[in-house]
Nucleic acid binder design. Structure first.
Lengths: 301, 301
DNA sequence: GTTCCGCATGAATCGATAG
DNA sequence: ACTATCGATTCATGCGGAA
């Protein structure tokens, strides 16, 4: 029977693994979130793909993704083209056009604004502080759970104390920023507004208690070329899936997408081609799972 | 003689006006900053261009721009594609590819993060809170004056007001603007920050003293619909030009680019096709000029 | 002189309705 | 069927007036 095995990591090439309709049946995935390896002029031994071949490398994989994604599901592609010889490369915007030719709808381009981006100084450009989160779907009536990502009204930094009770304020100050044990439902119940398409994760401990965040960022930062914080996949999971639905990351890397799915009570499926990541992924998942099951924690939804 | 007339507005079609090499000599413009009319499904009578024809409409104009831009000059294109039938349109990314074919170098894509974007709620998308500022050049060794945008308000206060005491300055501002006292004291304590490629104009009164900015925003915001604030062209003018250099806006609109050039001691040239804007533009320019010439004021660079 | 509250409004988007 | 118009929805910000 074509049944989807969830909470499982496959080690191999997405191009071949996702082709197996016995393992990945049609219309079975609720959300695909991934941050694929960036194009790189250097040798392709470490998962890098040559810029000139990036589109032709990605499109056959995207065909599989389109097959296995549910009709109302979403595909989020987190990517940013690097500069090459002083210019921004064009493979990402070419990929958008090709994905549309493949039948995908290009719904939106979210901007992930990384306020504390990698430092650096060059004569012809500033630091790159944002990445694209491209949203593709199969149908225009895709599923979207907007209420799950509503944010407190107005400027968070200036107004949150106003909406907090006196007791919460005192408790917050006394904690000295290191432990946000205050229950998030305190401010969640206050007036909230819809977000917009620029994602800024001001507070590192926005969604999760500090112990979860610390071990998750630790396991996602080590030895990985393109780490992203837990908040990024979490935000899209809350927006495009409900609990117990299935999230796929065909380029899992160090396992951040799986960790986010666990913490949000979603099912995960990951594919990773580089075998050296295996230990990292397994450590990350077991650590997050034990944290989730063993200790008191606060989660939104 | 092929001499460039500066501080002049031309009323007509950029496609034809910019073709005249007697009026616009080769290699004569230091910076082109513009926010062209967005593609619109509606009738093209009011400056709108059909999405399907946007690229073919823009490219011939861009050829003129490439001719008249100085070799080390920059071309900043502020644009954002609207949704159409639930999808983001692709004419902007197609335009990037075509401009590269025309010989432009696509150096960077700056993200202008508009915190106060237009409200709204829809089942398939959130509010659009960012626009693209695409940076094109003719050569990879273009001019860039990074120090001009790296100098924050802290240096501003010490350099420009060393003869004035802090209290004198606060008193001066307070005399002209009853709401500004608190903000000014906040600026004086600010540290320097390194710029990156996401533009956020948090402080409305960052560049100009309160009297200038108030009238300028009046000119560009109150009476007409302001496509962008003064800060946006100002930022790129400081980054890519020096004083007395020439800035061209081939789609001037209500005149914001010209106003910014005046306030920053740059020369402006504007082209606007819609004659109804003439009065607005002339009022805006004369108002800003009289403010600059008639009163004591303080400007960065 | 300062803070707070109320109100107007702006490069918007979707879906329904009318022609 | 296709196009044009209209109503409902939504929020950060600046401004004026009042306490």
């Amino acid at each position: 029977m074509n049944t989807l095995n969830v909470n499982k990591i496959y080690y191999g090439d997405s191009l071949f693994l996702l082709a197996d309709s016995n393992v990945f049946p049609d219309d079975s995935i609720d959300l695909i979130f991934t941050s694929p390896p960036y194009a790189d002029k250097r040798i392709t031994s470490y998962g890098g793909v040559h810029p000139n071949k990036y589109v032709s490398w990605f499109i056959p994989i995207a065909a599989h993704l389109k097959r296995i994604l549910k009709p109302r599901g979403s595909f989020i592609l987190n990517i940013k083209e690097h500069p090459l010889e002083g210019e921004r490369q064009t493979y990402v915007i070419e990929l958008i056009l090709e994905l549309k030719k493949q039948g995908w709808l290009w719904i939106e381009e979210y901007c992930w604004y990384k306020k504390n981006c990698f430092p650096g100084k060059w004569p012809n450009r500033f630091r790159d502080a944002w990445e694209r989160c491209l949203h593709f779907t199969k149908r225009s009536d895709f599923s979207m759970y907007q209420d799950a990502v509503r944010v407190p009204i107005g400027d968070w930094s200036t107004k949150r104390f106003k909406s907090m009770s006196e007791q919460d304020y005192i408790r917050y100050i006394s904690k000295n920023n290191k432990h946000m044990t205050r229950n998030v439902s305190n401010w969640l119940g206050k007036k909230t507004v819809n977000p917009h398409n620029v994602l800024v994760f001001e507070e590192e401990h926005f969604l999760y208690p500090s112990n979860v965040i610390e071990s998750a960022t630790q396991c996602s930062n080590r030895n990985h070329s393109a780490p992203f914080p837990l908040e990024l996949p979490s935000w899209f999971m809350r927006l495009f899936t409900e609990e117990n639905q299935v999230v796929l990351d065909p380029f899992l890397g160090s396992g951040t997408t799986a960790a986010a799915a666990i913490l949000l009570n979603r099912k995960y499926i990951g594919v990773e081609i580089i075998p050296e990541y295996r230990t990292q992924i397994e450590n990350c998942i077991s650590e997050v799972e034990s944290l989730k099951n063993g200790r008191k924690h606060y989660l939104i939804r």
